[in-house]
Design a protein around this nucleic acid. Structure first.
Lengths: 187, 187
DNA sequence: TTGCTCCTCACGTCACGTGAGGTGGC
DNA sequence: TTGCTCCTCACGTCACGTGAGGTGGC
């Protein structure tokens, strides 16, 4: 899809090495992020060019995407370092896989909890939007203008430093006000 | 539920002011976080005690929870500052509500997208765990031990610095390997 | 030679965490 | 007086962002 300046030999069996910019585009990360992963030992270039350019092969894309996905799942780079270390120091592949499976199981639970939290907040947003929609319909007829209230108090017309309450809202059930609305004028 | 040392007058109509620690417990945030919100102008204590202790009323709990929920939805504190500023400087409550409604609609879309991303990653975790489960069953019979391979190469038995491939896995469809598994041994 | 991509410092940012040293109130 | 909570600096952390000044390759 994306027409880049990256080497694209469509029928090549062994693809040309990727530069860091190619890897960044292919993985959806920034060059700086890739440098950072390297500093933390999560990734290494296969080689350097004569001009000290980092050179990667195609598997690096898989690796960076893997880092990105685990990070999106809420793992810190330090935690990802530990997974890498578990893999590299395990006495056997089977043992390493067992350790990683345990980490993934824990992450699965956390992710399900996070989805539930976001779904709850999604519902709060929906009901808050519905609640705020009614403000629009009441505005022209019932909203007090600032001069009406301030002139009552001291006779001078000033711009208030926070909006006036909508009197129509006074008639509403304040208890039914969603938290995402109540928080705005709390304080 | 939580028996705290906070003032609890069960039948009081006007509740006693909250100290910052009470507010922290009630809102699920740290004292430091509340200080930080104050530094950014998102929150102000109603008063100070003689000893300069911050004193809040019950609405501060609503406010801090509101900040926390918007933050959980992915808003930066700077963005939340802007919502507060929109409220405080809007010419009318109706106008302010309209602005905030627009922000909430945008957040709703982003949240739905985020839920979709997490759901996709949840599926990847599930299939990765299933995939890794089969490693357990194959381990005792098929796993090569380290000495078998290293002695083939140079006759000396050393601890390998990364686990050996499981030969049973060689028989599998490599293309079907989930990204969350492939990323581990990519590189 | 021009343009684009890369290189290595190294300081900045965001949302707090974490002491350091001191004071207040039952 | 002891304990607990609070106070104000102020530096640390995490995952990068953002120049600064310089080199490489078609």
């Amino acid at each position: 899809m994306a027409s880049s300046s990256a080497p694209n030999n469509a029928s090549a069996s062994k693809s040309a090495p990727l530069q860091v910019g190619d890897l960044a585009r292919a993985s959806g990360k920034t060059v700086r992020a890739i440098h950072h992963y390297e500093e933390l030992g999560l990734l290494r270039p296969d080689a350097r060019s004569k001009g000290r350019f980092r050179l990667y092969d195609a598997s690096a894309v898989t690796r960076v995407r893997w880092i990105g996905k685990l990070h999106e799942l809420g793992m810190s780079l330090t935690e990802i370092q530990k997974v890498v270390a578990a893999w590299e120091t395990a006495p056997s592949a089977g043992r390493a896989m067992a350790e990683i499976r345990a980490v993934y199981r824990a992450k699965l639970e956390e992710t399900r909890a996070q989805v539930a939290r976001l779904r709850a907040l999604e519902g709060e947003l929906e009901s808050s939007i519905l609640y705020l929609d009614t403000c629009e319909t009441c505005e022209p007829e019932f909203l007090l203008d600032s001069s009406a209230l301030t002139s009552k108090k001291n006779g001078s017309v000033t711009v208030p430093n926070r909006p006036l309450e909508c009197p129509a809202c006074e008639l509403r059930d304040r208890e039914a006000e969603p938290d995402l609305v109540a928080g705005i004028h709390a304080q």
